[in-house]
């Protein structure tokens, strides 16, 4: 029945006024998600978007799908319960760097290790926006914010490294402003069976303007980022003259044609590598020393928790005694 229905991006847009600050990176992400959803054959009523608390977590209100704006940090837990109750629905989690990595860090790692079939979008703007500008768990050391007037002391998380540490089966990164990267990343995330973890580098033009300027600015983006493609050598740069090679387990940038190094020396990306070692190396890449990887870093198959739960229930139903009266009477009873 659904196969016949065709969707447009606006079919996934709600009638509510969007209340993000003008110029916020979230607008581009919302438009990107609407666009990506229109390309798949799943109708709005078969989609649920679950969020926590923070600017990003207002996302469900702007979707025409089922939506649940829950409490701070716990969206993965709500989504897990929902996915078990409604296995046929496509469930999304929208979170931020504070929501997902600080107050909700525990839930994030556990949903990733369980590999529940969810699409998690983490908007990373390296700041607390909704509470008006405190440093976040991804803020750089030394950052001056309202709560760190002398500079932040905390060593930051790299979201993909945390997710890789939790053995996530799907890892990807995109930029709020780069639709060319975002669309294939979202398509791959939707297609992946298991937890898809997508870090979206997002600008907060009010409290952390230029959060990713060193990567995203148009004039330097090609040199500061590395667009990953499964099976392709890691080549980057405006002139595509630079490559990444592995020396042992140490990644380094080389210039193609210099020192006798050619394209053939470049590290070939394997998104389906079952081992985590190389994935973890990629997840730790950081500008300016190494280009920031964009695209799908990892996509592997592993049994899904939600599917397993249903398999056990179905298996138990085959031979289990479903007679309620006999359950109540139990093994031993007597009649008076």
């Amino acid at each position: 029945m659904n196969e016949q229905r065709k969707f447009r991006p606006k079919d996934f847009s709600s009638d509510q006024n969007v209340r993000w600050c003008p110029g916020c990176g979230d607008y581009a992400i919302l438009a990107g998600v609407h666009r990506a959803l229109a390309k798949q054959a799943i109708p709005p009523e078969q989609i649920a978007v679950v969020s926590g608390i923070g600017c990003s977590s207002r996302f469900p209100y702007y979707m025409s799908t089922y939506g649940f704006h829950t409490i701070h940090g716990r969206a993965p837990a709500f989504a897990t319960g929902l996915k078990i109750a409604k296995p046929e629905m496509q469930v999304w989690v929208v979170t931020g760097d504070g929501d997902g990595l600080s107050i909700g860090g525990n839930h994030l790692i556990h949903v990733l290790r369980r590999n529940v079939d969810l699409n998690i979008l983490m908007f990373n703007n390296r700041i607390y926006g909704l509470t008006k500008g405190q440093y976040s768990p991804t803020s750089e050391v030394g950052k001056t914010t309202k709560s760190t007037p002398m500079g932040s002391l905390d060593h930051p998380f790299k979201p993909l490294q945390v997710a890789a540490g939790a053995d996530a089966t799907f890892l990807a990164r995109t930029l709020d402003v780069d639709a060319k990267v975002m669309q294939p990343v979202l398509a791959a995330a939707m297609a992946h069976k298991g937890t898809s973890f997508v870090e979206i580098l997002q600008n907060c033009n009010i409290f952390n303007d230029g959060a990713w300027a060193a990567i995203a600015a148009k004039n330097i983006r090609a040199d500061a980022t590395l667009l990953l493609e499964h099976g392709a050598p890691m080549i980057f740069g405006a002139d595509r003259d630079k490559g990444i090679r592995l020396v042992g387990l140490r990644p380094e940038v080389f210039v193609i044609g210099e020192n006798g190094l050619t394209e053939a020396d470049a590290w070939v990306h394997d998104a389906h590598d079952p081992e985590m070692t190389r994935t973890m190396i990629l997840a730790q890449f950081e500008s300016p020393k190494l280009p920031t990887p964009l695209g799908v870093i990892r996509s592997i198959e592993r049994p899904r928790y939600d599917k397993g739960v249903h398999e056990q229930v179905n298996q138990a139903a085959v031979n289990g005694n479903k007679n309620l009266q006999e359950m109540l009477v139990g093994r031993r009873s007597w009649t008076v």
């Binding site: 649940f68 409490i71 709500f78 319960g81």
Partner: peptide, 8 residues
Amino acid sequence: CAAIGAAW
């Protein structure tokens, strides 16, 4: 939270 998700 998971229970609330299932209730929904």
